[in-house]
Design a protein around this nucleic acid. Structure first.
Length: 508
DNA sequence: TTATTGTGCG
């Protein structure tokens, strides 16, 4: 059209810009922008909005702001504002999105369903329950049109769960007149992200009871729940379901499968999925590295890490948690030290407390206590409970009573309500034969009304989850189970296995 | 012309 010397008009341009946004053809958009400056095109609000949208999808947040605030454009309408707010959220500036919304109200415009959905997603990202609740009230007071109802309700469910209120999310969910797959997904994903895996699976079961089929997004969350509960059978079922029903098996599904198999003990199946994936991303590599590290296969984990850089995939902070914990468990001190240094030197990633925790753990296990202490002293960020906890663990292994006492005080100061530091310290006293001190500490705990969190484990047999706690006799077969445990213990003792203070939990 | 849900962490 341009080659024929024809000038596109107000009606043509938005379509072209929309196509540009779909294919991220920024160059064409910029040409149109330049052309519009010479003509009066940008005074058309459609042209203005679609151009803003193009910049937004191309990630040019500054260009969006510039166009919106400084261009002598048309009267900006609700869509212009909504596009601006959406751009802020998508680029990771939810606070700016909320501020833009206040500006919009100042300009006497009222939000519609779409604006509210985007605002609620900004609240989700901020974890701001107060603001989210205010928006909910606004929706309630203004009786929004029913067409956007399901979207708004779904966004409310997501907001409440991400802001930590399962109760309010469930209330919205239960009272919704019509639910779609996104409503169910929002519930299941939100619960799983809160670590409420069992509840997430209960919702998944209800979803199937009402006859709604799960999609790929549902199954990613279900796999996360399986991974963290160790439900290999359900995980296997999901994998078969994906194959049988031709569920879109993208990177999300592949990554969730790797994690599920690894956490459920099938590291070989995790590796098979990993190898079969055409498009591996940073999540795929990280899940595989973390999985191998958990299984004590540090060398293989480090091999995968090398493959990763060979394939040109940039590791991130989480990848390094996996790499460093692999080194730590395998006692690869030099390898760990090197990777810790490479993190900032090569990859420009600032070590976080997690990484310092791994390094303290690495030095501590290897008996390099003074190096661990030096590292903490020179930390540019404030050490948290994980870092101190790793050092206290090292004190336990190497019977460092005096240092342990100092570290325990730090831990109690940071998290006074938790019992872990007391328990670990009392075990340090016990293993140093200082029973009186151990007893004194237990008494302090009692005085402060702290109870020891009972040791807990669970297994899945024929799809049913069996939970066990220390001293628990609620299981129908508990008499037989304890009898078997006793037999196993005596067999182990015959092989020279001695129970440490930490390991008695199940057998007391 | 604008919208909601998903993967890896000691």
């Amino acid at each position: 059209m341009l080659a024929k010397g024809l000038i596109p008009d107000n009606y043509t341009i938005p379509y072209v810009l929309k196509a540009c946004a779909r294919s991220q053809a920024l160059k064409v958009g910029q040409q149109i922008h330049a052309h519009s400056l010479k003509t009066a095109l940008l005074s058309n609000v459609y042209v203005f909005n679609t151009l803003m949208r193009l910049y937004a999808v191309c990630g040019l947040i500054k260009a969006v702001h510039k166009l919106f605030h400084f261009h002598q454009g048309p009267q900006r309408d609700l869509v212009s504002w909504t596009t601006l707010i959406q751009a802020c959220v998508k680029m990771g500036y939810p606070r700016d999105a909320i501020l833009a919304f206040f500006d919009m109200c100042q300009a006497n415009l009222r939000p519609d369903g779409m604006t509210l959905v985007i605002l609620l997603s900004a609240c989700s990202k901020l974890g701001d329950l107060t603001l989210g609740t205010k928006i909910h009230r606004y929706i309630y007071d203004n009786n929004l049109d029913l067409n956007s109802d399901i979207y708004v309700h779904n966004a409310l469910i997501d907001m409440y769960l991400k802001c930590g209120s399962t109760r309010l999310a469930s209330k919205v969910f239960d009272e919704m007149p019509v639910k779609n797959v996104v409503s169910w997904n929002s519930m299941i994903a939100g619960l799983a992200q809160q670590g409420k895996y069992k509840e997430a699976l209960d919702v998944f079961q209800s979803m199937q009871c009402v006859g709604l089929n799960p999609d790929d997004i549902t199954l990613v969350s279900v796999l996360t729940a399986c991974a963290n509960l160790g439900l290999l059978q359900l995980g296997n079922w999901v994998h078969a379901y994906i194959d049988k029903n031709r569920i879109r098996a993208d990177a999300f599904i592949g990554n969730a499968l790797i994690d599920m198999y690894a956490k459920c003990g099938s590291i070989d199946l995790a590796f098979t999925v990993f190898q079969g994936m055409k498009c591996k991303d940073v999540y795929s590599y990280t899940a595989m590295i973390v999985g191998l590290a958990m299984h004590g296969e540090a060398e293989r984990a480090l091999d995968i890490f090398s493959d990763m850089s060979r394939m040109g995939i940039e590791p991130d902070e989480v990848t390094f948690v996996g790499v460093l914990s692999a080194c730590s468990h395998a006692g690869l001190v030099d390898e760990g030290r090197k990777n810790f240094e490479d993190m900032s030197r090569i990859y420009d990633l600032k070590p976080q407390t997690e990484h310092y925790g791994c390094m303290v753990d690495l030095f501590g296990r290897a008996g390099l206590i003074s190096e661990a202490v030096e590292l903490i002293k020179n930390m540019p960020i404030v050490p948290d409970a994980f870092v101190w906890g790793a050092l206290l663990g090292a004190c336990k292994i190497h019977s460092k009573v005096e240092l342990g006492e100092i570290v325990m005080e730090e831990l109690v100061r940071i998290e006074p309500e938790r019992d872990g530091a007391y328990i670990l310290m009392s075990n340090i006293y016990s293993s140093a034969d200082r029973w009186k001190d151990a007893l004194k500490l237990r008494k302090t705990m009692k005085k402060r009304n702290m109870k020891k969190t009972p040791g807990c484990s669970s297994i899945e047999v024929d799809g049913e989850i069996h939970e066990f706690r220390k001293g628990d006799d609620s299981h129908p077969k508990s008499v037989e189970i304890y009898k078997l445990l006793k037999e196993m213990t005596s067999h182990l003792k015959n092989y020279g296995y001695l129970l440490g203070t930490q390991e008695c939990i199940l057998f007391q």
